[in-house]
């Protein structure tokens, strides 16, 4: 940006700053120096995801009917059940995918937003590494949804055993999608902009004294 250039978001071609808002001549993407409204979009998606986290964990994600006996199952309930059967490995995988990863992602994104708004621009390399992990790992929290999809398709045996999906699963899918979109709409370059201006400020202060 300082050199009077902007980068195409999709094909990474460089164009003069005067092309802001126009379309890339190589790939046709809309050009912006920084992603427009990155902070507001990220905040909105994070808040939506946090609200959806409640119904996702409190409402049942499926209903198990076995020999006329009905039993709702929540995400945490499923983890505890796996653990009580001694399947700790798989219980941990499900716990990680459905609780730890969504919470960790929200926390990671909040740290990035705080870094941007409060100017915590130390340890930038670690922050970037954390953001890349948050970005990459996000899709794996869809695991529980696909488990429900598989169980619902397989256990359709009428009176003997029947599993049906419940609205908690929809809320959980909403959490996953919102956090993925939030990571996509965040612009890490904004933190670097702040990092650079703070560096020049301290340089000026040193020059004054």
């Amino acid at each position: 940006m300082d050199a009077g250039l902007l980068t195409c978001p999709d094909c990474h071609a460089l164009w003069p700053l005067s092309m802001e808002g126009e379309y890339c001549r190589r790939c046709g993407a809309e050009l912006h120096v920084r992603k427009p409204n990155a902070m507001i979009r990220t905040w909105a998606l994070i808040l939506t995801a946090s609200f959806l986290l409640l119904p996702a964990n409190l409402l049942p994600i499926m209903q198990i009917t076995s020999l006329g006996h009905q039993q709702p199952a929540t995400i945490i309930g499923g983890v505890i059940e796996l653990g009580s059967h001694g399947m700790y490995g798989i219980a941990f995988v499900v716990l990680a995918a459905s609780v730890l990863i969504p919470l960790g992602k929200l926390l990671g994104l909040l740290i990035m937003l705080a870094a941007l708004q409060l100017g915590w621009t130390t340890n930038m390399q670690q922050k970037m590494a954390m953001f890349r992990i948050v970005h990459w790992i996000g899709r794996w929290s869809m695991l529980d949804i696909f488990v429900v999809a598989a169980l619902v398709a397989l256990v359709q045996l009428g009176n003997i055993a029947q599993i049906s999906g419940q609205p908690g699963a929809t809320a959980f899918a909403g959490v996953v999608i919102c956090t993925m979109l939030a990571a996509n709409s965040f612009d890490t370059r904004l933190i670097w902009d702040r990092h650079m201006t703070q560096d020049t400020h301290t340089d000026e202060q040193r020059a004054d004294t």
């Binding site: 796996l82 995988v93 499900v94 899709r139 949804i145 696909f146 488990v147 999809a149 598989a150 256990v155």
Partner: peptide
Amino acid sequence: VYLLGTLVSIIKL
């Protein structure tokens, strides 16, 4: 992720 979900459902069932 879908494949992993199917594998988890095998273990559950």
